[in-house]
Design a protein around this nucleic acid. Structure first.
Lengths: 240, 240
DNA sequence: CTGAGTATACTGTATAGACAACCTTATACA
DNA sequence: TGTATAAGGTTGTCTATACAGTATACTCAG
């Protein structure tokens, strides 16, 4: 059974996503939620407080709770489909499927997917090549609940992300970028020297509160850099 | 008067910072905190829960609460002051100024700053430290036209970006992220081994059509990752 | 009309108690 | 020895209540 405070959170998030509540809209007060959902004020308080800490709402004592400005500067990492990107450069795109299987979630994956118990997950490993040279090693897990037909796709025709975006609307994205020294198998797959560092881009995407997919994309340093440029809309507390 | 739950949070963060509690250490249970601080269990619960959501602790039902092994992350989207970021983790911030000079723009810098001829530029090199350990090497050039008093600042009190943001409104930002192997001087300044890769974040910012500053920020891979999470507002063409 | 005081709504904090679910360990039993 | 069972500790959730602080709207005296 889903906890009450989580139900209230989902309800409000749904309204934000559907457009019923937009930036600056007033969210029901704690007491209004108490009446509507027949819960105690502390439960309503928890729901609103957590949404506030998560950046969705802003609260003002004595006034009310409001929907916060949707994170501006959309995607820093507005990464294009790597296949399209390579083709746009006039180069040849190709890929190799190294693994297409169903696995059972390990403890790490359980945490990544915000699961509660080990469940099956789809797993693919793909090497993307530009003019026959590997430029990206993609290691991806997918939640079957969100994309049940994922494994039936032919990923040489359509990249996994292209397929997922066509099938599942993405609400939220998380990126973590690190510099790593790839291990032996990764070096062999990317055909790079043991001394070459790589960019590791870990991405998770959400749809309606569920983690759809978790992917680690590894780029050889000599062959790729991440780039973004954008206008700063609001004042925002930028620095460093 | 600081709230009780905040006092408990600070107390635990202090213990993590001092080393009394290290990664994996067990944190006092809610009931132990109740006895120790003479507070109610809900207050202890709030302190531990918030620290958990903030990434400092991990809780296991039926077992206990433990200090999490958290890799520090810096935000990619909304850039925060690294000093604030470190202080927010309850760690000690310090920095060393390696260079504070005026230089004449080289061809590379002329291109970076969109200049037409060699003009003077301010130059600073700063090492930012967390608990005495270097976590970022900042190599920055600044356009004197936009911030004429830049060099008069005391950067041990205020980071360059914090100052620049206070003085110059930023319209536009550009980021390029790469994985690199630092050269000798960089290794020495960051106190890392020759085999450790680094993240290189190159950033330019514009104000009213002029390039204000161009900075290269180098993070040792073992000590930092870049992080971003955001809602996707429109049906933007995300992919790969 | 103005300004001070008041009422009201809202969030922030804190308490005490309750029950459930989970994990570990000790104990009793086969 | 191995297996149930019980006990106790731990987190997760929820309720009901209380008081404080803040912002806004309203009322009423000057």
């Amino acid at each position: 059974m889903t906890p009450l405070y989580a139900q209230v959170k989902s309800h409000i998030l749904d309204q934000i996503r559907s457009g019923a509540l937009t930036s600056g809209s007033r969210v029901p007060s704690e007491n209004e939620l108490v009446e509507r959902f027949k819960i105690s004020r502390m439960t309503a308080n928890r729901a609103l407080n957590e949404l506030t800490h998560e950046g969705h709402l802003a609260r003002v004592p004595g006034v009310g709770t409001f929907v916060k400005d949707a994170t501006p500067r959309t995607s820093l990492l507005e990464l294009r489909n790597i296949a399209d990107e390579i083709l746009a450069r006039g180069h040849a795109y190709s890929c190799r499927l190294e693994d297409v299987t169903t696995v059972t979630a390990t403890p790490n994956l359980i945490e990544d997917f915000e699961l509660k118990s080990p469940t099956p997950l789809f797993h693919v490993v793909i090497i993307h090549e530009e003019n026959g040279m590997p430029v990206q090693l993609e290691d991806r897990h997918v939640n079957p609940f969100c994309a049940p037909h994922f494994l039936k796709q032919d990923f040489t025709l359509q990249t996994p992300t292209a397929y997922l975006l066509a099938v599942v609307p993405v609400d939220e994205l998380e990126h973590t970028v690190e510099a790593i020294m790839p291990d032996g198998p990764q070096q062999r797959r990317l055909k790079i020297a043991a001394t070459e560092p790589c960019l590791s881009l870990h991405r998770r995407s959400w749809s309606k509160g569920h983690v759809v997919t978790s992917a680690t994309l590894i780029y050889p340093a000599s062959r790729y850099a991440l780039y973004s440029r954008y206008l700063t809309t609001s004042k925002g507390s930028l620095s460093q």
